[in-house]
């Protein structure tokens, strides 16, 4: 098993945001994580990537315990995320965003950087070419010199995924990649995520609200509600699960009262 979460719980004061969640992801899968607003999906991501430390429970990646590691250490192990509200290096160019993220695979050290040694030259040439290749694969090569924050919204999302890919993650966590996208952009995104999985040989765990996106690309999915795991199964099973329907309809009812 590539990635396992066992009895994961976090309490903020009296609120149990994630309550006894157990889930797993196998190598090469695309797994969905859905649930109504406030169900604790992003909190799960924050726990997995070390932003929060769980109150109890275990997170294991390739058998190694991730609890207690810092976010950068977890990223170094190959678990890399994107953010719900895009976090690019805003004033840098598209190319610089991807190049910066490629740092993990650059072995040279500080003295090489001071003196620009032969080793520096070799590594820099490689990462430069690698960044261009990556931008080409994600279709951003023609816009490589544009400032990241000036890109259209959909492309900013794409760039954020590209930046995560520059670290060559084993497990990619996508937090609502289709948020704010129109139907056409959603279709493109589905294609894109499939391409990413194939070209980068990575496993993907994805939070999403757009059901057409998630039903389309996920092999399995987990449903969270009020921090608890509500259901687990294939998209077809989830669609007819009465508990899931109730959770979503229940939410719709409170909306109607407002």
């Amino acid at each position: 098993m590539l990635f396992e979460v066992e009895n994961l719980t976090i309490k903020f004061g009296g609120l149990t945001a994630v309550d006894d969640v157990t889930m797993n992801v196998d190598e090469g899968e695309i797994v969905g994580l859905i649930g109504p607003n406030g169900a604790g999906k992003t909190t799960v991501f924050n726990l997995v990537t070390g932003v929060y430390t769980p109150t109890s429970g275990q997170i294991r990646f390739r058998g190694q315990n991730l609890v207690g590691l810092k976010p950068n250490q977890i990223a170094k192990l190959g678990v890399v995320r994107t953010f719900q509200n895009i976090r690019l290096f805003k004033t840098l160019t598209v190319y610089e965003n991807v190049r910066t993220a490629g740092h993990l695979r650059v072995p040279y050290r500080l003295p090489d950087a001071f003196l620009h040694t032969p080793r520096f030259d070799v590594c820099e040439q490689e990462t430069h070419e690698d960044a261009l290749r990556l931008l080409d694969m994600v279709g951003l090569l023609s816009r490589k010199d544009e400032i990241a924050s000036s890109l259209p919204y959909g492309l900013q999302r794409r760039l954020e995924i590209a930046r995560a890919l520059a670290t060559r993650p084993k497990l990619l966590l996508l937090d609502e990649p289709a948020a704010g996208m129109n139907p056409q952009e959603c279709v493109d995104l589905i294609e894109f995520i499939r391409d990413v999985k194939r070209d980068f040989d990575t496993t993907i765990l994805i939070i999403e609200h757009h059901m057409d996106v998630i039903m389309n690309i996920c092999e399995r999915m987990y449903v969270l509600n009020f921090g608890k795991l509500l259901a687990h199964g294939t998209p077809a099973e989830i669609q007819v699960n009465p508990k899931v329907i109730e959770a979503y309809l229940g939410e719709a009812q409170t909306d109607a009262e407002d």
Binding site: H103, A166, T167
Partner: peptide
């Protein structure tokens, strides 16, 4: 100028740009 045009220099700038994003791609801020 050698330093800022290197991996380390790019990480410095990443820290300035967005620490959380920098950590998310493995930069030890």
């Amino acid at each position: 100028s050698n330093l800022v045009n290197s991996k380390q220099g790019r990480c410095f700038v990443a820290v300035k740009e967005d620490e959380i994003a920098a950590q998310s791609v493995g930069i030890d801020t």
